[in-house]
Design a binder for these strands. Structure first.
Lengths: 117, 117
DNA sequence: GCTACTGGTAACCATGTAGTTACCAATTAA
DNA sequence: TTAATTGGTAACTACATGGTTACCAGTAGC
C-alpha cells in the first residue's frame, strides 16, 4: 500500500473525536477563525487549539496567522487518503471483489512481520 | 446526520491503529482464528484479543466461538458508515459542492451547542 | 503610549489505551 | 483420565489524550 501507516494513524485518530469532526463540518462551510470554531462548543479555547493542532498534524486543516487572528481552512489530502483506504475495504462487501483481489495481489502476504498497512 | 456520533467515534478510533488495520487486511482475505491473526505480529495473544474486542465494539469484526477456537470475520456495516461520512467531505474538495450543500442544508446550524456529527 | 482582544503555551489532572505477564476455562486428543 | 492447545481475563505499567486554569505574546484601537 502506498499510504504511510503513521499518516493513516493520525488521520483516523483525528476523525475519531466528535469535536474535531464538528470542526471539520464547520470548516466545510467556509474558512473560520479559532474563535469562530470555539464559539459553538462548550469547551475552552485552549482545548480547541489542541484539537486544531491534531487536525493540522493529520493535515486535515491548515492554519495561517493573519494579524492577531488565525484563519483555518480545510486541507483535504489526508482525508482523501483515508477515504481511499476505506474504499478498498468497501470493495470487499460491495461484491466488487476484483478490486480487492487486485489490492491483495499487490500487497505482501500476511506472514510478513510488522508489515502494518 | 443519521449516523450516531458514538458509533463513528468507535469506528475511526478502531481504524486508527495499524495492528487493527492489519487485522482487517488479513480478514479481507477470509475468516481466521485468533491464533491465525496473532501469528504475523510480534504482539502477544492477549493484545490481539483486546484489539479484537475494540474491532467488535466498532462492529467491524464478528467473533463466533467454534469449539475451542474463535472464528473472526469482517462485519462491514460500520466501515460503510465511516466511508459515507468521509465521502460527504470528499464532495467538498472534489467540486461536487451540490452534494455538500444538500448535506449542510439538512444539518443543524453550527450555532447549536453540543451537536456533534 | 495604554487597553482590549485573539490566540497560543505551560502545568496539571483524570481517563483511556496498548502492551506486558500470569493465570483460568474449556475443548480436543493421547 | 490426563495432557496439550486455544482463548480469554486480571492486574499491572507506561504513555497519550482531552480537558481545565493561569499566564504570555502580538495586534488593533483608543
Amino acid at each position: 500500500m502506498v499510504t504511510s501507516s503513521r499518516r493513516l494513524d493520525r488521520t483516523f485518530a483525528a476523525l475519531a473525536d466528535p469535536t474535531r469532526r464538528a470542526i471539520l463540518v464547520h470548516l466545510a462551510r467556509g474558512d473560520a477563525t479559532v474563535g469562530d470554531l470555539a464559539r459553538p462548543f462548550r469547551v475552552s479555547r485552549p482545548a480547541i487549539s489542541k484539537h486544531l493542532r491534531v487536525l493540522e498534524g493529520a493535515r486535515l486543516v491548515r492554519r495561517t496567522r493573519e494579524g492577531r487572528m488565525s484563519r483555518c481552512a480545510l486541507d483535504a489530502a489526508a482525508m482523501r487518503e483515508a477515504a481511499e483506504w476505506i474504499e478498498r475495504y468497501r470493495a470487499f462487501w460491495s461484491g466488487r471483489l476484483d478490486a480487492l483481489k487486485r489490492y491483495v495481489e499487490q500487497s505482501p502476504p500476511p506472514g510478513g512481520k510488522e508489515r502494518h498497512p
